[in-house]
Amino acid sequence: MKTEILKIAAAHLKPFLLILSLVVLYRGHNEPGGGFIAGLLAGMAYVIYAGAFGVGKAKQLRLAKPMFFMGLGIGIALFSGMIGLMNGAESIFTGVWTTLTFGTYSLKLGTPLLFDLGVYLTVAGMLVKIIFTVMEEDV
């Protein structure tokens, strides 16, 4: 499936999908979206790339380290559960919220977002890992 059209499209889709996945990740708390879907989007960016250029090339990409991201993701998700404890809450996974303001813009951050980030990294890593494993042996 090595066509020029797909190659050009994949190269341009990759950054677009990654940015889109971050947007979906951020809006996930109050609107449709969230870590899982965003992770699938981010993973798809790499899967399409691998489909166009072959797994060998996709593996050389800077961010294509699925196992590392899976570990990091689980670690971040667990860490988000501990933040509440450090703030003196009684139980793990107690939510902590802060709002950052830059002039007129305000950014609402909290441990659920951090947890979602962990899910995002884990899902993206897992998707890439599994599909790379299957595709690799095909070539």
Partner: peptide, 8 residues
């Protein structure tokens, strides 16, 4: 779970 992270 923490061990999984470390094992990775």
């Amino acid at each position: 779970l923490i061990s999984i992270v470390l094992l990775i």
